[in-house]
Design a protein around this nucleic acid. Structure first.
Lengths: 217, 217, 217, 217
DNA sequence: CATGAATGAGGATTCATTCAT
DNA sequence: TATGAATGAATCCTCATTCAT
C-alpha cells in the first residue's frame, strides 16, 4: 500500500521529467530542421517556436538562450556521429577493413540519415560565436582522439611511442571525410554516383593508412 | 613634346586611380584583421571604419554593402591561395615531389603569412548569407579543379579516362589540408611542432596519391 | 450551460482582438497628431512611439513599415471624409440645398473636428513616396466619383448622356473646398470669420452648380 | 581712353556676374527636371549635380542649402505663373472674358509649357519643411491677392466695401484651377480631351463669377 | 507551465554639407 | 572657382530576451 502511494507520488514526477525531455527533444528537432534549411543567423526564435508549435515564451522555458539550443544540438549531433563511427569500427575484421567500415557508415548512415546534423556540424555552427566555436573545438578534439585511439589500438604497442604521428593521420582522415561530405552530400556538386565517390575516398584513406600501419610494424 | 603634355594630363588620373585602389586595399586589410579576430557577424561597419581610420560614410564610398567587402576579400584570398599552390606546384621535380611542394607552400606560406585569409576562407565566410555561400562553392570548385587538373596532368593520357576518380582524390586532399590547417594553425590544438605535422600530413597525401598515380599506369 | 462554457472560451479572443485594435488605434491617433504638427518626413518612428507611449519595437508589432501606418491613416481619413459628406448629402431637401449641406458639413465637421485628417490628406501625404501618391490618387478618384454621382443623381436621366461634364464640375467643386480649407483652416490666413467664408464659398458653388443643373433640363 | 580702361575693368565683372547667373539658371533647370520626375525627397544633391553636369561641390557655390534651391525655384515658378495670368487677364475684353482668358492661359500655357513648375508648386514643394511651407503660403497669398484685385477692379467702386467677399471667391477659383490641373494634367486621370475639360471648368468659374459681379451692381 | 505582447539595444545604410587640393 | 572625397548624424528596422497574465 505504501508502495502504491509512493508510486502515486513519484510517477507524476517521472512523467513530468519525461514530458519535459520529450518536449525539449521536439524543439530541438524542429530547430535542427530550421537551421539546416536556412542558416543559424537567419532563423529566429519565432521561427523555431512556430516549427515546434509552441510559443516564443515556452522556448525559453527549455533553453536559456538561443546559443544553448545550438550547444545542445551540437552535443547531440557529435554523440550521434561518434556512436555511428564507433559501432561500425567495432565490428570484427581486419584493421583496414574496420576503418573502411567506419568510413562507409559515416557516408551511408550519417550523411544520409542525419543530413541535418551533418550540416549543423560542418556548416551552421561556424562563425556564430566564440562559445560555439569552443564547443566545435572540443567536438573535433573528441573525434580526433577517437580516430587516433583507433589507429593506436590497431598498431599495437608500438603506436604509443609515436602518438603525434597517429594524431596527424587522424586529423587528415577527418578532414577528408568532412570535405567529401560537404562537396558531395551538402553542396551536391559533382558526381551523383555517391557509391563510387565513397569507394574512391575510402580507397584513398586505405592507402594512406596502410602505409602508416606498416610503418608501425 | 606632345608625349609630355599627354603625360601631364594622364598622370592625375593615374594617381587618382591608385589612391582610390590604395585606400580600398587599406580598408580590406583592416576588415580582414577584424574578421579574423572576431567574426564576420560580430564586426560592424563602425569597427571596420575605426580600424581603417576612416568614417562610416567613407566605407560606403568603396563598398556598396558589407557583403560586397566580404565577397571581394574572398576573391582576393582565393586568388592568393591558388597562386601560392600553383607557383609551388610548377617548380621542376618528380610528380609526387611537386604535390608535396605545393602542400608545403600551403602550410608555410599561406597558413603562416596569410593566416587571416586562411581564417576567412575556412571559418568566417561560412553561414553569412546564401550569396557568400555561393561564392565559397565557386572557390572550392576552382581549387578542386586545380588539383584535379594537376593529378590528370601528372598521370598523363590515361587520366582522362577516369576523371571522376581524380576529382574525389582532389576533394580528399583539399579536405586534409583544410582540417590540418584548421587544427594546427587556427585552433593551434595539439603539437606545436608544425614541421613534423607538415611532414606527416604530406606523407599521408603522398601515400594516397602514389597509389592513385600507380594505378593510372 | 453549454453556452456559458462557449462564452468562456470565446471571450478572451474577442477581448484580445479589441485590445489589439485599441492599441493600433492609439498609435494611429498619436501618429496623426505628430504628422499634423511636424511633417511626415520629419517625424521618426521614435517620435511616434514616444507620443503613443510605447517602444519602437512595439510599433512594428502593429505596422510593418512607416508607410503602412500612413496608408492606413489615409484610408481612415478618406473613409471619415466620405462618410461626413455622404451623411450630410443624404438628408432631405432640394438638390442645391443638399450640396450646400454637404459643403457645410465638410467645413464644420471635417475641417474643425478632424483637422488633423484634413492636414494629412491635403498636405502631409504629398511627396512621401510613389505608393502613397497612388493611394492619394485613389482617394481623390473616389471623392470625385462620389460628387459626380451626386450630380448625376440630382440631374436625373439626362445626366447619363454627358458624364464627363459632371466629372469636371465635381473636380472643380472638390478643388474649391480643398483650397478654402487649406487657406482658412490650415493656414488660417485671412478672415477669422469662418462662417462668412463658408457662406461665400458655398454660394459660389451653388451658382456654378445651379447653371449645370439647369442646363440639364 | 579712360573710358576704355574703365570698360576693361568693368566688363569681366559683368561677364562674371552673367556667367554666374547663367550657371545658376542651368542648375535650377536641371533640378526642376529632377524634382518633377522623382520627388524632392528622392532627389539628392548628387543627382542634381549630375543632371547639371557639375560637381557636388560646385552646387554649394551657387546655393547654400538644398532648401535654398527649392526656395528660388518656387519663386521663379510663382513669378512665371503670375505673369502668365496677368498677361492674359490684361488683354482687352469684357470682364468675364478676361477671367476666362486668364484661366485658359493657365491651362494652355502654364500646365502645358511649364509642366515642371506646375508639379513643383502643386506637389513637390509640399511637406518638405516649414520654411518651404512658409514660402508656399506667401505664393498663394500673392496669387489670391492678384485674383482678388482683379475681381475688385472689374466690380468697380462697390467692390471695396466687401473685400472679404472677393477673397473667398478668389480662393475658390484658385482651388478649382489647381485641382483640375492636378487631376487632368499631372495625374492625367479621366478624360484625355483637355479642351472640353477646360471649357467646362471655365464655364463653371464664369457662372460663379457672373453671380458675384452682378451682385456687386 | 504556457503564452505572446512588449522591449530597446544594435546594426546597416543614406545623404546633406564641408574642405583640402 | 571647381572638384569630389570625406564626414557622421540621423533613421529605419530586427530580434533575442523578458514578464505580466
Amino acid at each position: 500500500m505504501q508502495t502504491e502511494q509512493l508510486k502515486a507520488v513519484q510517477r507524476p514526477v517521472v512523467k513530468f521529467r519525461r514530458m519535459k525531455d520529450r518536449r525539449r527533444s521536439l524543439i530541438m528537432e524542429a530547430a535542427l530542421k530550421c537551421f539546416a534549411q536556412n542558416s543559424v543567423a537567419a532563423v529566429g526564435i519565432a521561427d523555431i517556436a512556430k516549427a515546434a508549435k509552441i510559443s516564443v515564451g515556452t522556448f525559453y522555458l527549455y533553453f536559456r538562450k538561443k546559443e544553448d539550443l545550438l550547444l545542445q544540438l551540437l552535443d547531440e549531433s557529435a554523440r550521434e556521429l561518434r556512436q555511428t563511427l564507433a559501432e561500425a569500427f567495432n565490428l570484427e575484421g581486419q584493421p583496414l577493413d574496420r576503418f573502411e567500415c567506419a568510413g562507409r557508415a559515416f557516408f551511408r548512415k550519417f550523411c544520409n540519415d542525419q543530413r541535418e546534423m551533418l550540416i549543423l556540424i560542418l556548416r551552421e555552427s561556424i562563425g556564430v560565436s566564440s562559445e560555439i566555436e569552443e564547443k566545435r573545438k572540443k567536438i573535433f578534439q573528441l573525434l580526433i582522439n577517437d580516430i587516433t585511439g583507433a589507429i593506436d589500438q590497431v598498431r599495437g604497442a608500438k603506436g604509443r611511442r609515436e602518438k603525434r604521428h597517429a594524431e596527424v593521420v587522424a586529423v587528415s582522415i577527418l578532414g577528408m571525410l568532412e570535405r567529401v561530405a560537404y562537396h558531395y552530400y551538402i553542396w551536391q556538386t559533382g558526381s551523383k554516383d555517391l557509391r563510387k565517390v565513397e569507394d574512391e575516398a575510402l580507397a584513398f584513406i586505405r592507402d594512406g593508412l596502410g602505409s602508416v600501419l606498416n610503418r608501425g610494424n
